[in-house]
């Protein structure tokens, strides 16, 4: 069996009295791309925010690389090797592209490693290098998404958590973004992906979890679920 990187068990999250996650369990193994799909409001973003420490669970455990991280503050989780690319990119508009990338390396101490990672990011995203002195707020949506992903790579992650990376992008860019996600795996990284574009997400994933109003209602190998009649109808528009 492959190495377990992230194990979430019986996770319950509340916003006040609203029960956003009703005891979900899932796991991500090393080297996998795992997708979490579901409609708006199903709890996908909440799940990611809870895993990376922005929201605290009421119940359940989040074990990352053998450590329970349920009560570790968000800023410390980054240096453990799990980095979260939030929905809507959230690049720092008032910082330049280069400064944004440096913020990604905030938790990193090894200067030589930061420089090497920076070089790799510029190699993978040449457009970011061209615009390194530009304020991030002046970039297009696709460029901002690339910056957000490049910024995450500078944290030297093992597990990259991506929230709606294709949101609001043109079909051409969407394909490009999914190619980048595939390249993460080729670089030895593990990916947990939340997507509205279920079809695309399933096409690059190893396994898929379907989230419906705070509960996981289906899970399995992406190659199987993609042929599941119910999934097809609800999420693939067929």
């Amino acid at each position: 069996m492959s190495e377990r990187l992230l194990e979430v068990t019986d996770l319950e999250v509340y916003y006040g009295v609203i029960n956003a996650l009703k005891g979900i369990s899932f796991h991500v193994d090393k080297g996998e791309i795992v997708s979490l799909i579901g409609a708006n409001g199903a709890g996908k973003t909440t799940t990611l925010h809870t895993i990376t420490g922005l929201i605290r669970p009421r119940k359940g455990s989040i074990v990352y690389k053998g450590t329970d991280i349920g009560h570790i503050p968000a800023h410390k989780i980054v240096s453990m090797g799990m980095v979260h690319v939030p929905e809507g990119r959230r690049v720092f508009q008032n910082l330049t592209v280069y400064e944004n990338l440096l913020m990604g390396a905030y938790s990193q101490k090894n200067k030589a490693e930061i420089a090497a990672n920076l070089e790799n990011v510029f190699k993978q995203f040449p457009r970011l290098e061209e615009r390194r002195r530009q304020l991030a707020g002046t970039l297009s949506g696709g460029e901002q998404q690339m910056l957000a992903m490049g910024r995450a790579l500078l944290a030297n992650p093992e597990l990259i958590v991506l929230d709606e990376p294709s949101m609001g992008l043109s079909p051409l860019l969407v394909s490009e973004i999914f190619e980048i996600i595939k390249s993460f795996r080729e670089a030895g990284k593990t990916v947990l992906l939340v997507e509205q574009n279920a079809k695309k997400a399933m096409s690059i994933s190893d396994r898929v979890y379907v989230l419906e109003t705070g509960s996981i209602t289906a899970d399995g190998a992406a190659s199987e679920l993609i042929n599941d009649e119910r999934i097809k109808k609800a999420y693939l528009g067929e």
Partner: peptide, 24 residues
């Protein structure tokens, strides 16, 4: 400075700053 840039980042987006490993 690294801290100075972190200040700009926090003033703009606390959540995203935390996700970079910044102790807000």
């Amino acid at each position: 400075s690294k801290t100075g840039r972190a200040m700009v980042a926090v003033s703009e987006d606390k959540g995203a700053a935390q996700l970079m490993g910044i102790n807000v």
